[in-house]
Design a protein around this nucleic acid. Structure first.
Lengths: 204, 204
DNA sequence: ATAAATTTAGAACAATTGGTCAGTAACCAT
DNA sequence: ATGGTTACTGACCAATTGTTCTAAATTTAT
């Protein structure tokens, strides 16, 4: 590879890296090409020399990110044997290496770290917390009545609400009946789990 | 109430309604004041007469929405007795009346129904589906090995991935350890459920 | 009927955006 | 060294944005 080609590749990588971080911090829409230009010292025109458009740049970043994640996980994976362990491992890997994955944070307008949209952020936080509190109350009742095992109701409420809010993102192409089925299944899983009855409940 | 006041209130409501639908369809950023003006026939200036800003309008919409949701749910709630039923009921109510709640869809830049950002949408769909397929494979292995109950692995994969992607949104203020704990708890719940051992497994 | 107050309209504004383009600099092959 | 190719710059553009402002229309109060 040429000295020129090397430098060019480095520039492209520099752009992609800065873009990735900015997309995480500010979200896609709020990140402007000029932001990326400022952050890298690379001119706007040059960015458009390396990437056909802002969309193209985003997709490139997303793609590289995903590839990298998969490679790293496959490496981690080796140390686990049972599927149960792997499920836990994948979650751990997700949190540690991938805290800001595009599918969680970047595809989000409001919760970016540097966003000045604090009014709306506060409102959304408030709404979320209200809902979690409500779920917590509900779950506490279930625990009190002996319907559920004694447990940390706040944690359970967060998990329950996650299912409610998150399932929508996973199944946008489903019709109403399919959606309802998925939700019902999720609640059932939440209630009864997926472990086989004879599997050792070796958690905690 | 005056004839004038009534008409004014109606205008305000018309604006809020149109804004709500546009926020659902296009997301917050992609919805412009002019869009709302066009959709309602109410002039831009008039919108700013009724609401102090775009943020203010959004927060107003969010607030009304949340109030309405809670009222309707509390009505529904009466028909259920056990907490288990209520959890199922809340999910059902969520899907039917609240399919596009701001906490799922509006706070999202890309998946709006009318968005022209199809390139990125496709890419994200692809990424999601790749991940779901991967989880499905993993879960299938667990089922095959007898670790998990025999079940629809695709549904389970969607639920599992929802936990992975969704938990982040619920717990942005937690530190790493707390986050890891929450994830671990979620996986455990996914595996073993929350129902007490002596509760009747009367689902399905 | 007239004045005051409220409600509405739409032109105008400053800022920002993604994207283009003509020109310059750096490097390569010959 | 020179001509050609690649990499890069920064001014520029058209479009869009949230917001403001002035003035007109409508209703109410006197």
């Amino acid at each position: 590879m040429n000295k020129k080609q090397t430098k060019s590749m480095l520039t492209k990588k520099k752009i992609a890296d800065a873009a990735k971080h900015l997309f995480i911090q500010k979200g896609y829409t709020a990140t402007s090409i000029e932001n990326i230009s400022d952050a890298t010292g690379v001119s706007k025109g040059n960015i458009y020399y390396h990437f056909e458009s802002k969309e193209g740049l985003f997709i490139y970043v997303l793609d590289e990110w995903e590839k990298e994640w998969m490679e790293q996980w496959e490496e981690q994976r080796k140390q686990y044997t049972s599927t149960t362990e792997q499920l836990h491992g994948i979650a751990k890997h997700f949190v540690i290496n991938d805290y800001n994955h595009p599918l969680t944070n970047v595809a989000d307008e409001f919760f970016s770290h540097e966003n000045s949209n604090t009014l709306i952020q506060n409102q959304l936080y408030k709404t979320i917390n209200t809902r979690i509190s409500y779920s917590q109350k509900l779950l506490s009742e279930g625990i009190a009545s002996g319907e559920f095992k004694s447990d940390d109701s706040l944690l359970l409420a967060k998990i329950f609400d996650t299912l409610l809010y998150g399932l929508n993102n996973i199944c946008r192409d489903l019709n109403m009946k399919e959606t309802l089925d998925l939700y019902a299944k999720a609640i059932d899983t939440f209630l009864y789990g997926i472990a086989s009855d004879d599997s050792a409940h070796s958690h905690d």
